[in-house]
């Protein structure tokens, strides 16, 4: 479904990604783990076209997308829950969701999808008319996920969805990721919370200093000595 071939990316003169090769198959949950500053966010954002890949190819369902603009790429059944959530704080919850479904022209489908998001996140329905910025961190994370789902993605990027949240909320978020898989959505997940992420994942990649250093099934990575030491606290 998604394939990166020898992708590099730069911020100005600084190279943030080196020769990255990644594949995400249809229906998979794939995790990317790595330390702070390793380049996880950069990798996701490069797929979204910001920054543009300075080298290599990115294919979505066989189509090269690395030369397209961010807005073109994101109109292709790809959605992202970005680092820091980036909900529109001054818009209401409902308006945020509608921004997600901006390009869904079929009214019936739109209403159905909205229904589905509200059933996945009942909290959002309760707070439909509340300004998004006044919601709690967990609620905002759910809103960011709901907003992404409103575009009816087949490939979903999640950049540290559990960051800064209470364990119980984190559990909810991971449960929902599991549900998304059941609905046929392919998930590419960036997590600091490597333990939980890998348990859920079919496969995982480990990134260090902008390079992919390890690739294996989720189960294998969980038992991998080095991964345990570096990312799972021993």
């Amino acid at each position: 479904m998604l394939e990166l071939r020898n992708v590099s990316a730069h911020y100005g003169q600084i190279q943030a990604l080196h020769d990255v090769n990644i594949q995400v198959g249809k229906g998979e949950i794939v995790s990317l783990i790595g330390a702070n500053g390793a380049g996880k966010t950069t990798l996701l954002m490069t797929i979204c076209g910001d920054p543009k890949a300075s080298q290599g190819e990115i294919l979505f369902e066989g189509e090269p997308i690395h030369l397209q603009s961010t807005s073109q790429i994101m109109r292709k059944d790809i959605a992202i829950v970005p680092e820091g959530r980036r909900i529109f704080a001054r818009l209401t919850v409902e308006e945020n969701l509608h921004m997600g479904g901006f390009f869904l022209d079929d009214k019936a489908e739109f209403a159905h999808l909205e229904q589905e998001v509200y059933s996945l996140f009942p909290r959002l329905l309760e707070r439909k008319h509340q300004r998004a910025g006044t919601m709690s961190g967990g609620e905002q994370q759910m809103l960011a996920m709901g907003r992404a789902l409103m575009s009816k993605p087949r490939l979903l990027f999640l950049d540290e969805p559990s960051l800064g949240l209470a364990p119980i909320i984190i559990q909810q978020i991971f449960d929902i990721i599991e549900k998304l898989r059941e609905r046929g959505i392919t998930v590419f997940l960036v997590e600091q919370n490597a333990n939980q992420a890998l348990r859920l994942s079919d496969r995982g990649y480990v990134i260090e200093n902008g390079r992919i250093v390890l690739e294996d099934t989720g189960a294998n990575l969980l038992t991998n000595e080095e991964v345990r030491k570096a990312y799972l606290g021993g």
């Binding site: 807005s71 109109r75 308006e95």
Partner: peptide, 24 residues
């Protein structure tokens, strides 16, 4: 309006609007 909402969203976070496929 839908476009008006997009204007407000862009005023808050142009990059995020872009990530939603909006032609900013």
């Amino acid at each position: 309006s839908k476009m008006g909402r997009a204007c407000r969203a862009c005023a808050e976070d142009l990059g995020m609007a872009n990530l939603l496929g909006i032609n900013t």
